[in-house]
Structure formats: C-alpha cells, structure tokens
C-alpha cells in the first residue's frame, strides 16, 4: 500500500520524460528488432499528434513490410496495390484539398513497380508527402534484390552479389524526382542514430508544413536497414549501411527552396 502510494507520487504528468506517442495504437509492431520502420512510424505519429492534425490526415500504406502501417498509427488509412500509393494520394488530395495526405512506401514499391506513379505524381506537383524507406531489399517477400540494391550486395535473387552488367544499375529515385518541377522539398535522411532521428523528424514536419502551404510534392527518403534479410545484427546493419549505402545514397537536402533563401 505504501509502495503504491509512492508510485502514484512518482507517476504524474509533471515527471514524465518519455512515453508512448498517443497516436501509436496498442498493436504490437511486427517489425524485426532494429528495423527502421518502427522509428519512422513513430516519427510520423508524433508529428501528427504534435501538430494536432489527426482528423485532417489520411495515410496510404504500401505492399511490403509496412503494409500494416494502418494497424499502428491511429489515423484514417488506405492500403494501396503494390506501387500505386501516389495515384491514390493524387485523387484523395484533389477531392479533399484541405486534408493532409501522405504515402509510405518501400523501395520495391516506389522504385520498381510504382516508378510511373511516383514520377508522374511528383511531376504534376501533387500536394502530398511521399515517405520513401530505402533499405535496398524486398523485405516482406524474403530478401530479394531491389532496384536500389547496391552493386555487389547479396540478396536471395543476387546470391553472388548484384552484378551490374547482368542485373542493371541501382536507381536513385530521390535524385530523379528532385529534377522535376513539381517537387518542392526533396531530402534524404536516416534513422540509425539519435541525431539522424531528429533530422528526419524535422524534415517530415517541414514536409507537412509545406503541404499546408500547397507548395507541391514533398519527398523524404529514409535510407534504412533490414537486419533480417541482410543477415546482420541491428548494430552490424547500421554500420554496414553507413559504410556501404551512404556512399551511393548521401544524406542531406536535395531540394529545399526556402533553405536557399535563408543563405
């Protein structure tokens, strides 16, 4: 009894330094330990919560590991066919221009089967946010080569490493969409360290802000890991990502007009 009283004395709003974001549901995340998806989900949930836009936001989940985004963030969501999320987002935003609309897509979804939908939504300058998780592999289907798999990287369909002569080059979608007049803010971030988590959160918050101002398409790539399919521990995977992925996918803003004005 005395212990309970002591606990109640400690657990009070004034003492809380960290807690589960209100907009994350009670569902247990199905992601593997160390996977970046959970972190990016939380960042999005935190921003929607902090900005107070739950009732104005519609999310679109892809086909892939993050298909169940709608189970974890307490907002209205639609689940798209593989690669088609930007087409859904286009219609949702045009039919309800005052809502916030974002897609959440992996590299297979966005950079392979959904290349056309991605490029044309960006080129039309749809007022949406595209969050692009790039871990260089098809996660849910069990580790096949993705369009973003780096040269030499092993996967279940490039078991001897990606042979560029035979299998083609990797594709940098973020660099491509940055060249399109319809995109307003294009950036590449990561969530493998505390400082990078803060930068990614800042970027996604900025993208929501630009969407409110109807500036055009915002595109946030998050270079991420896949410990299970890379067959590494979470720590090893983050190190491997820094050493091998970042040279191909350097972090930073590719396009941010307001940043240029600040200079």
């Amino acid at each position: 009894m005395n212990d309970t009283n002591q606990m109640n004395d400690i657990i009070k709003p004034g003492n809380i330094v960290y807690k589960r974001t209100d907009l994350m549901t009670d569902d247990i995340l199905h992601y593997c330990p160390g996977c970046g998806h959970s972190t990016v989900h939380r960042i999005i949930a935190e921003i929607i919560d902090e900005e107070g836009i739950q009732s104005e936001t519609i999310g679109i989940s892809p086909v892939g590991c993050s298909v169940y985004l709608y189970n974890y963030i307490d907002i209205d969501c639609q689940e798209a066919a593989h690669g088609r999320a930007p087409a859904l987002a286009t219609a949702i935003k045009r039919l309800m221009p005052d809502k916030y609309v974002f897609t959440y897509q992996g590299d297979g979804d966005l950079a392979a089967i959904g290349t056309a939908e991605t490029i044309h939504a960006c080129n039309r300058g749809e007022n949406i946010l595209i969050v692009f998780i790039n871990n260089g592999i098809y996660g849910m289907t069990g580790g096949q080569m993705a369009p973003t798999t780096i040269p030499g990287m092993k996967s279940s369909t490039s078991p001897y490493g990606r042979d560029v002569e035979m299998m083609g080059n990797l594709i940098k979608m973020t660099d491509i969409v940055a060249t399109l007049p319809g995109t307003y803010f294009v950036t590449r971030q990561s969530v493998h360290s505390a400082v990078n988590v803060r930068r990614t959160k800042k970027a996604i918050r900025k993208a929501f802000h630009y969407q409110k101002l109807k500036k055009g398409t915002c595109f946030v790539e998050v270079v991420s890991n896949c410990p299970s399919n890379w067959k590494m521990t979470p720590v090893e995977s983050n190190k491997w990502m820094e050493e091998n992925m970042f040279p191909y996918y350097p972090l930073g803003d590719l396009k941010d007009p307001e940043k240029q004005q600040e200079k």
């Binding site: 639609q78 798209a80 087409a87 859904l88």
Partner: peptide
C-alpha cells in the same frame, strides 16, 4: 493503371 487507382483512392 494510375487512373483506376485514383478511383480507388477517391
């Protein structure tokens, strides 16, 4: 393909 998926979203 995009047109029918816009219909889905709408």
């Amino acid at each position: 393909v995009a047109a029918i998926n816009m219909v889905y979203g709408g």
